[in-house]
Structures are given as C-alpha cells and as structure tokens.
Amino acid sequence: MKVLMKGNEALAEAAIRAGCHHFFGYPITPQTELAAYMAKRMPKVNGTYLQAESEIAAINMVLGASAAGIRAMTSSSSPGISLKSEGISYMAGSDLPALIINVQRGGPGLGGIQPSQSDYWQATKAGGHGDYQILVFAPSTVQEMVDLVSDAFDLADQYRIPSMILADGMLGQMMEPVELPEEGAKQPVEKTWAACGHENKREHNIINSLYLTPDKLESLVLERYERYEIIKKKEQRAEEYLTDDAELIVVAYGASARVARSAVNKLREQGQKVGLIRPITLWPFPVDTLKKAAAHTKQMLVVEMSMGQMVDDVKLSVDCKIPVSFYGRTGGMIPTPADVQAEIEKLLK
C-alpha cells in the first residue's frame, strides 16, 4: 500500500533507496525534515549522517565522498544553496556526480521561509563561477520527488555531473501518498576514476579542477560541453496536459504547475481550450516539447512563484514566434488557481 509522506522525508527515503548512504547537511527551513529524517534513518543502514558546521562544509564533504566514489548528497534551502554554489562549481569542474536538493524559499537575502521558485536562474544558469551546467529536475508531486531522486543519481553518475532537485517549501512540507522503490535494489556503480586508493594496481587518480594552462582548461571545458549537448538531446523531460487542441498553453513547473493545472481544469469545464506544459527537467530545458507546441497553439502563459525567471527560456524555445506572457507571485506568496484562471481569461479575450 502507498504510504503518506512529507515531500522532504520522501526525498530522503528515496535517496537511501537509490543507494545513497552518505548525507551531509546543515539545518535550514523549509528543508530541515529531510536532514532530520536522514539522522534517524542513516544509522539503521550503516550510513553516514553528518551535520556539518556550515553549508559550505557540507557541500565539500559531499565533494570528498563523491571523489571517493560513492553516492553522496546534501540538501538545503535557497540561502544555503548560495553558500554551496562554490562547492557545486568545483564539483562540476572536477566532473563529480552528486545530488543537491534545494527546497526553495523566498529571497533575495535571508528572504522568507515560504515556498518560492526564485532560484531558477541560480539553478539553471549561474550557481557558481565558470562555464558549467548541472542537471536540474523539478518534481511537482511527492511521488515524482521519489522517482526523480533515483533518476537524478543515475544520470549524475552516467554523465559525471552534479544533479539538483529544485523543489520548494510547498512540495517539501506537504504530504501525499507515495509508493517507494524496493530497498537495496540499486547496485553500486563502479567508478574507476575515484580517489579511493590505487592499491598499487594503477596510476594515481587525481580529482581536480585546477588547470593553469589555458588550452588544457579550454579543452576540458569543451569536452564537458560535448557531454552537455548529448544531455540536451537525450534528457529533456516535460509533461503535456490537454495541449493537443489548446489555444493557450500555460507553462509552469513544480508547485506552480499544480496551481496552473487546477486553473486549466476549471477552464476546460467551461469549454475553454487551454492546456499545460510542465517542464520536468529545467536543465536541459524541454525546448523540443515547447517548440512543437508553438506550432499549433496561439500563445503561452508562464506561471511561476518568482518574477518570471523561466520566461526567457520559454521565449527562446518558441523562437519568439508566438506571444509569451507571464503571471507570477513572489516572496513566498502562492498564486491561487483563481488568480491564474483570471489571467488566462484576460489573455483569451
């Protein structure tokens, strides 16, 4: 039978079941239940739960554990992710896989603690310094949080790239029924590049992001960007909902996609032809789905819990061929289905 779980706790349990037995964290609202759950569960699976002295230390512990070749993760909320950004850049530069979870809250600065989606740019464009990307997944249900944790780890290992799950306070705090994967089903991935002792059987492995020769550094970045191109081709994900005949398509992810879906349902009941595209990967952005939809719909409305950080990506995806509008709330405010419905009705007039 399904169990009722909080998003934060479901993320934690899913990670353990994905074979992650090392968690390094630091308390911050609204993700703290995740760490607390790990503190309770990890000793039971002979794993490590370590409360670090800071978010900076936590991400670097993840860096070390990942360098040693095992699945490791950390979780935090917006201000904490800013602190982790240095470490994420280093991990990208060292080709290290790991899972970072951001249960977003309002910003900038200390901001607030209510749900927000205002770290879209940070996650998809500019977390830390340097030319790099990380995989970004945006679940919108507790079940999807569970499912994406496993995929995020797998793809991180496959492409040797950090993965992020971009959730928010609403998804982290809410409970929904979930079905969990079987425990112990995941086999550890063998990592020949790991720094875990050469046993005098091979050359020494070096995990490093420092390259003082520009042409060497450039060639490494170019190699990484070739991998990014493969990821962009193969790993885009989005859900389409009632888009076939839609004259207006709402584009929303995560919690705001839930709100948008309610609005779409209401309008469909009234015979309005509206649909929803819900990006599941934010990087790679589901350009293909949007491009295809742009060919048969008349306009798009982006709905976010931010000031419209995803709008540019939508516009670029549809080559600015159809109008793209925006509706959002920020600072921890959650748009209501009625708000979104009213906005759509205004656009359809």
Binding site: T48, N60, M61, A72, G197
Partner: peptide, 25 residues
C-alpha cells in the same frame, strides 16, 4: 597516492567526506 584538490579552506571538509565514505582509506 590518489589525490583530491579541495576548494580554498575546505580541505578538512573534503577529507571528512572521503574518510566517512571509505573509512578503510
């Protein structure tokens, strides 16, 4: 031996991660 290059100041956090991941190292 195998080596990891840490961000500035974070060597002991990185070492903590390695040691917790592979205590036999």
């Amino acid at each position: 031996c195998d080596m990891v290059e840490a961000p500035h100041g974070r060597a002991q956090a990185v070492a903590t991660g390695i040691k917790r991941a592979k205590p036999q190292n």
